[in-house]
Design a protein around this nucleic acid. Structure first.
Length: 224
DNA sequence: GATTGATCATAC
DNA sequence: GTATGATCAATC
């Protein structure tokens, strides 16, 4: 059994892009073997395992400090499951919502914008043998940022004004608000109507698959 | 088949 | 419990 491998963080985005590119075509189990880690066999228990595997493979600090996965580069890593057509099959978690603090955020300084300012997308085929597709280093285009900003301003406004319980995942064209919790009994304090705080299920921002599909489709090889 | 709401693992 | 990493599974 090989000893778990720990890479040093990449020192430049060019080095990161090179490392990522080298993963193209490999399967998750090949990668897991090479790194000496085991992937959960039961899919239900494997949530998050893929992201953590790729983190290790690229030298991200993996679950240590808050902030971008590649802190020195300001790059966030996201794995994304794709179908045979290359399109995303799931939404993408962006960040949790701090219900009271969000009233004091503006888009330019928002957590959503910060998270999405520079992302390395690593698409992975959903169907066995789970091959890694060509990674994309991405920054939002002006049009993409406008779309994100419009949704964020609407959604953040609803949260800040006490409408969290009326806010469903239907809202937002590219960004949406959905539960983000260990289980359904978790509660956090949030602004409520009539200036009365309420206990609500914690929520987070997610990118709709239609938005990430645009990212994966628009970026040609080497763009990043 | 796509989407929404709920959930699962790990580290601190 | 909080935060990071996401996908599951019931529902539309």
């Amino acid at each position: 059994m090989p000893v778990a491998l720990q890479l040093l963080p990449p020192r430049s985005t060019a080095e990161l892009a090179l490392r990522a590119e080298a993963l193209t075509g490999r399967t998750l189990s090949e990668l897991a073997d090479a790194l000496g880690v085991e992937l959960p066999t039961e899919p239900k228990r494997a949530k998050g395992a893929v992201g953590q595997l790729i983190e290790r493979a690229l030298g991200a600090c993996g679950g240590c400090a808050p902030g971008p996965d590649f802190a020195a580069l300001g790059v966030e890593l996201k794995t994304i499951p794709v179908g045979a057509d290359g399109r995303p099959r799931e939404s993408t978690f962006v960040c949790t919502i701090a219900p009271f603090e969000i009233a004091y955020e503006e888009w330019p300084s928002s957590r959503v914008r910060a998270k999405l300012s520079c992302v390395l997308w690593v698409p992975i085929a959903l169907a066995p043998p789970r091959r890694i597709q060509r990674p994309r280093l991405w920054r939002p285009s002006p049009a993409q940022e406008r779309a994100l900003r419009e949704d964020w301003e609407e959604l953040a406004g609803l949260v800040a004004t006490g409408a969290l319980e009326q806010l469903t995942a239907h809202r937002g064209r590219v960004l949406q608000v959905r539960p983000k919790a260990a289980h359904g009994r978790v509660r956090t304090l949030a602004p409520g109507p009539e200036e009365t705080p309420l206990f609500a299920l914690p929520r987070g921002f997610y990118l709709r698959a239609r938005f990430t599909a645009g990212i994966l489709a628009d970026l040609e090889p080497g763009c990043g």
